[in-house]
Amino acid sequence: MEQQQSAGWQGTGGNMWVEAQELLDQMFQPIEDLLMQALPADTRRLLDVGCGTGATTLAAARRLGPDSHCTGIDISGAVIEAARERTAQARSNACFIQDDVQSHAFEPASYDTIISRFGVMFFDDPVAAFRNLRLAARGNATLRLIAWRSAEDNPFMTTAERSAAALLPQLPVRVPDEPGQFGFADRDRVRTILEHSGWERIVIEPLDVVCSFPEKELLRYITRMGPVGRLLQTVDDHTRQQVASTARAAFEPFVHGDEVRYTAACWDIRAGASDQH
């Protein structure tokens, strides 16, 4: 599974995130805002896990100022390249690492804040990943993650695949607890992962956030993102048009004039490192 996740993010998955960078940043802007508002003011070294094209890393660097050191890490070369380009354009001091969090050789006890916006649900061995992050954390460091709750709690995120299932029989079925978008849906499992990784003061609370993006971007979202978007790159034009039309109709309840609105049903996950390893 780890190899599948890595291959996916190195290939189609990573490229799609780069192509849809502006749309995705807009879709998840309220999540970024929540993370930024909660940053400890005394943060000097921050790590952004599964940073994608760098929006949250750059936002943290802006918020914490020039004396801070903000680093993003992601397994996808495509998104890290995009993040570095954005950083150069913004003249930011943020920096980025392309590597697997599960095995990256972090400098021990080097970060006082670790954050993630939807970037931690894809690990093949999440205990190994969070143990590695714990080793990278300084004493009394804080961990703050936003992850999706279940597919059932997020009807917007599953509308495309539910509406297209009959037209795309090869669409993969989501399996509970497998690495992927809803890999952290089970709160008890997430708590166990963090406890076994050495984290303390664990708090996991439901968080519902209203998000939006322009209606004119909806068709691109349907045909380029998620399991349906990935699969549509491999089918014939007729099937692609059928799926797009069927899925667009299914999204109608979320369309309000020129805006698409939905609720992101998440877990707000907080934990801390003890003052000793």
Rank of each mutant, 00 (worst) to 15 (best):
A7T: 13
D42G: 04
F130A: 01
H256C: 09
P179Q: 12
A105H: 14
Q26A: 14
D258E: 15
D33F: 02
D67S: 12
R261D: 01
G72M: 10
E85P: 00
W199L: 03
E252A: 15
C95H: 13
Q181R: 11
G54P: 04
C211I: 02
S110E: 06
G50F: 07
A137G: 06
C95G: 09
Q241P: 00
G198L: 07
D177I: 09
R44D: 07
Q98E: 15
L35S: 08
F182P: 06
A129V: 05
Q89H: 12
A151N: 07
A273M: 11
C211L: 04
K216N: 12
R270C: 10
A136L: 06
F213W: 02
T57V: 06
R261N: 05
N93K: 15
R44M: 09
D236A: 09
L167W: 06
Q10W: 03
R191H: 14
V173L: 12
F184L: 15
R138A: 11
A38T: 12
T43D: 04
D99V: 10
T56K: 00
I31Q: 11
P206W: 00
Q102V: 05
A265Y: 04
V255D: 04
I269R: 03
A273P: 12
R248W: 08
C211R: 02
Q242N: 13
A129D: 01
R248C: 07
I80D: 03
F122N: 07
A160T: 11
L171Q: 03
L135G: 11
A273I: 11
G52M: 00
Q102D: 08
S150Q: 03
R45E: 11
P126Q: 08
D42K: 13
N15K: 14
P253E: 09
R174L: 14
N154H: 07
W199Y: 02
R201K: 10
I204R: 01
A244W: 03
A129E: 05
S76F: 11
T57A: 09
A94M: 10
A83F: 05
I75Y: 01
G229C: 09
M121R: 03
A105Q: 15
P253N: 08
S103D: 10
Y111H: 12
I97V: 15
E195G: 03
S163T: 11
V209C: 02
M1H: 13
E195F: 04
G8D: 12
L168Q: 06
D100E: 09
A249N: 11
E107K: 14
C70P: 03
T113Q: 06
L35H: 08
F96Q: 03
C266H: 00
V18E: 07
F254C: 07
Q170T: 12
C95A: 11
I204L: 10
R162T: 12
P169A: 08
A55K: 08
C266G: 01
Y111C: 06
P179K: 11
F251C: 05
T246R: 14
S110R: 09
V18S: 08
L218W: 05
G139Q: 05
M121S: 15
G54S: 00
Q29Y: 12
Q3T: 15
L232N: 04
R248Y: 14
